[in-house]
């Protein structure tokens, strides 16, 4: 028998963080939601609650979302104290109501971190991630200057490992899950992705130095090897990449001590 005909609908209490704007006080507000189909996604449940609020003349709950299939990294709720909620290796948009039981109280908050200020209700400002990328998360390759794609073979294991790291969706759950609000997993994923490839070697030192110093300057905390980040990561990015980045960083620091700093543009490394 198909699941949708046999499962019972559920009613829940939603305890949501409401905050009108960036520097305003926020508080939890309870909403009852009844007769929900368990095959509904968590975000669809919020849609339904929001339409009900609208009809009652109240302001709907602001929440971030777009692709609703776990790839864009927009959705970002802490559900019952867990970044992206129950379940392993999924984003908020991939949580379904069947993960809850009839009568549950579900607490929903924004991702909390100093570097991610709250914009409204469940929406935070994660532009700090973009700033870290702008500092060095790239390989300089002006359009039109590339050699033939097969001119540079890349060993398959390196390409595969680079891809594991590149799967990061930039959601920030790693930061929200970390008690120090560290962005190490996010930065390590990008540094490893590019550093594992032969194309990424020329700027390897400069990249890691610039990205790490920008991360520090933006108010992210230090890593104390708690590994809550990997546990919350919707793409299961492993903390092994953090160790890899630490080695890169150390090497780059040593090498830059013997070399004059590069002139001109660059992300202010060191």
């Amino acid at each position: 028998m198909v699941a949708e005909n046999t499962t019972k609908n559920l009613s829940i209490t939603l305890r949501v963080w409401r905050q009108a704007g960036p520097n305003q006080p926020g508080k939890f507000v309870d909403y009852q939601s009844k007769d929900l189909n368990p095959n509904m996604s968590f975000l669809e449940m919020l849609d339904v609650v929001n339409d009900e609020l609208t009809l009652k003349g109240e302001e709907p709950i602001a929440f971030a979302h777009d692709c609703r299939e776990g790839i864009c990294g927009t959705c970002s709720c802490t559900i019952n104290g867990k970044a992206h909620g129950p379940g392993k290796g999924i984003a908020t948009c991939q949580v379904y109501m069947r993960a809850f039981r009839d009568g549950d109280v579900i607490t929903v908050e924004p991702f909390r971190a100093t570097a991610f200020p709250i914009v409204k209700d469940l929406i935070t400002d994660r532009s700090a991630f973009d700033k870290i990328q702008q500092a060095g998360g790239f390989i300089t390759a002006r359009t039109g200057s590339a050699p033939d794609a097969n001119a540079l073979p890349v060993p398959k294991p390196d390409a595969d490992l680079a891809m594991d790291a590149a799967a990061c969706i930039g959601c920030g759950a790693c930061v929200a899950a970390c008690k120090n609000a560290s962005a190490m997993l996010f930065v390590a994923a990008k540094v490893s992705h590019l550093g594992l490839l032969p194309q990424g070697q020329a700027e390897r030192d400069q990249r890691v130095l610039a990205m790490v110093s920008t991360m520090d300057a933006l108010g992210f905390g230090n890593c104390t090897n708690q590994y809550e980040c990997s546990a919350a990561c919707p793409k299961l990015i492993t903390h092994d990449f953090i160790a890899r980045m630490n080695r890169d960083y150390l090497g780059a620091t040593l090498r830059s001590a013997f070399k004059p700093a590069p002139l001109g543009t660059g992300g202010g490394a060191g």
Binding site: F138, I139, A149, V154
Partner: peptide, 12 residues
């Protein structure tokens, strides 16, 4: 060519 130069990790 352009994408590979940027570090796009295509299957190999």
């Amino acid at each position: 060519d352009q994408c590979v130069a940027q570090g796009v990790p295509f299957a190999r």
